[in-house]
Amino acid sequence: MTTPARRRLMRDFKRLQEDPPSGVSGAPSDNNIMLWNAVIFGPHDTPFEDGTFKLTIEFTEEYPNKPPTVRFISKMFHPNVYADGSICLDILQNRWSPTYDVSAILTSIQSLLHDPNPNSPANNEAAQLYRENRREYEKKVAAIVQESWNDDDDEGEEDEEEEESKAGS
């Protein structure tokens, strides 16, 4: 059945393939266009560089009038990312506009990795280290960058990873 939300998501996917923004990628899951898997590559010149961070994006039939729910599946250490992977980002909440598409969402999250906003912390430890002890902050980020590779290599092998992707769907 095709609905405005599904039609729009097909357009989003087409646009993402035709005009792929650098450093992000995403696609609908195999049998459900309302659930997407995405990857954000850590931006250059940030402590997240070389990391490959996986996310899920869940849409409702109210899309694009309502924003989707976006969540990191890979472990994240960032002032604006909660422990469960959900993200504190204004365009995903009160500053949402129906003109945003998946490409815009992913690039916004990518730039959040670039410029954390320590004033609205979702992770207090990360926010505090970001403000007061940048070296320690970078060390912690480096650790989750390493972990993000393990995710990649062992995909489907590690029990933990399997559990997680089940929970996400």
Binding site: P4, E62, N65, I91, R95, S97, P98, T99, Y100
Partner: peptide, 22 residues
Amino acid sequence: MHFQTQIQDGITTAIECMAKEC
């Protein structure tokens, strides 16, 4: 559709233009 979603959420006099950052 935009108005429907907003009104369902109880938003009326605060409905904004759909364009981003407008």
